[in-house]
Design a protein around this nucleic acid. Structure first.
Length: 209
DNA sequence: GTCCAGGGCCGTT
DNA sequence: AACGGCCATGGA
């Protein structure tokens, strides 16, 4: 890949921060076990507009209750959504997130009945299916595709926008535009996308809006 | 006490 | 298409 501002930013961040640590050790692990993938999916929903410390508290509650995996959640009934909400309370917006989690889990388990569903379906189709679910917007959908399913799709978030402004990488901060921009400047490699986005979040915390 | 975090939904304009 | 209010906790 030729030198360009975006790839150079990756190299700089990699040099400055090394391999992503903390939560990112799990999210950037290769390969992941099935259980780890399911845990990342849960985390992707809980982390919406939430401090990771709070998400961690919620994840601990779920683990103690043996409900930190998609397969455990989709075994629940509708009447258990309140119990789920109580467990994830520290992550904030917990009533909504409990519903999001429950129906997302149902969706995943349903599709998993079809052989190799997530490996066989085209990426664009999978993404549209995720986006059709309540509570799964562009960032959450792409986070799950990239970090849980190892699909080569670049995640855009608040920190990506901050760095894009700070380093004048773009003027348009529209999600689809930024995503295409980053993907067009990088080798199509989920491992690169995973590490780069993690580093963007780590670095982004140093900047105000 | 105040501010804010890795979003997304819904109603209004 | 764009914008504002809303959802909520815990740490700085």
């Amino acid at each position: 890949m030729k030198q360009n501002k975006i790839y150079k930013l990756y190299k700089d961040l990699r040099k400055k921060h090394g391999k992503p640590q903390d939560q990112w050790q799990l999210w950037c692990r290769r390969p992941k076990t099935k259980a780890e993938r399911e845990e990342v999916m849960v985390g992707a929903i809980l982390t919406q507009q939430a401090n990771w410390k709070n998400v961690d508290l919620a994840m601990d509650n779920l683990k103690k209750a043996r409900k930190a995996k998609i397969s455990a959640i989709c075994a629940l009934g509708k009447k258990d959504i309140q119990e789920l909400a109580a467990l994830i309370r520290p992550s904030g917006f917990y009533q909504q997130k409990a519903n999001y989690l429950f129906y997302f889990a149902k969706f995943i388990c349903e599709k998993n009945k079809i052989a190799n569903y997530f490996s066989v379906q085209p990426l664009e189709k999978l993404r549209k299916e995720f986006l059709s679910l309540k509570g799964i917007g562009p960032e959450t959908a792409d986070s799950i595709l990239l970090y849980a399913l190892d699909k080569p799709i670049f995640v855009i978030d608040e920190y990506t926008r901050r760095l894009a402004k700070r380093y004048r990488l773009a003027y348009n901060m529209d999600y689809a535009y930024l995503q295409k921009l980053f993907e067009s400047k990088l080798k199509k490699d989920y491992r690169l996308y995973q590490d780069f986005h993690a580093l963007i979040v780590i670095e982004g915390k140093n900047f105000k809006k």
